[in-house]
Amino acid sequence: MTTQDRYTLNARNMSVFYGSFKAINSVNLDIERNKITALIGPSGCGKSTVLRSFNRMNDLVPSARVEGEVIFHNQNLYAPHVDAVEVRRRIGMVFQKPNPFPKSIYDNIAFGPRISGWKGSKTEMDDLVEHSLRNAALWDDVKDKLKASGLALSGGQQQRLCIARALAVEPEVILMDEPCSALDPISTLKIEELMMELKQRYTIVIVTHNMQQAARASDYTAFFLMNAERAGEIVEYGPTGDLFTNPKDKRTEDYITGRFG
């Protein structure tokens, strides 16, 4: 097996800067296909920054700059000829706070395919919407009110709508930035179950500061900390079971047992 068969994304010596501030220092991270990889660490250590570098969302921050490489399909995402728009279609994102568009549930899902040059018919689009909603475990909740505003749903439903929306453009990878932090425990559980289903077809990278969630739901875990210059670095990365039961680094152990300052 070549690396790119086993792995979807490989970050190589990736450093991220905001202006002159180095937020991420030389991260190496291989994201395995059809697995859930969790990024954990104290707040401000750069988890979101790493995640956003995986689909070039950091392009939208004028001061942000990425050094090193992120390999996807044997191409560096930061090579000059790569188009960020296509990257983001292949590598979707779900955000910390649910952010449905102020449109109908149907149009929320259809937005992505439409802008991406959808050629299918109206019924095919209906199918796609239903399919995406089913895969996000939202279909039964909303099948009778597809024309209702996405904002009318509950928080957990909104977040699943955002997941469904991301699925509709058929990405390979879904990046999730603390997708449950604004949700109640029951909704959180639903999303976690959903992730387990989705990983059969997608690669998932999730940022979480909830240790139980990482332990419960992920296959691999990367633990980040800030170094002396306040730049985020990977302290330890490995299968979730190993990392939580048998951490190699003292700092990891301190963090997962809650002894961290």
Partner: peptide
Amino acid sequence: MDAPEEKPTSGLPHGAAMQRNIVRRRR
């Protein structure tokens, strides 16, 4: 929960079609 379904026949452009699509949108 249902198992993830097979994709419906996709109306989304792929490969070269996607490239052309992006060029057009950029223009």
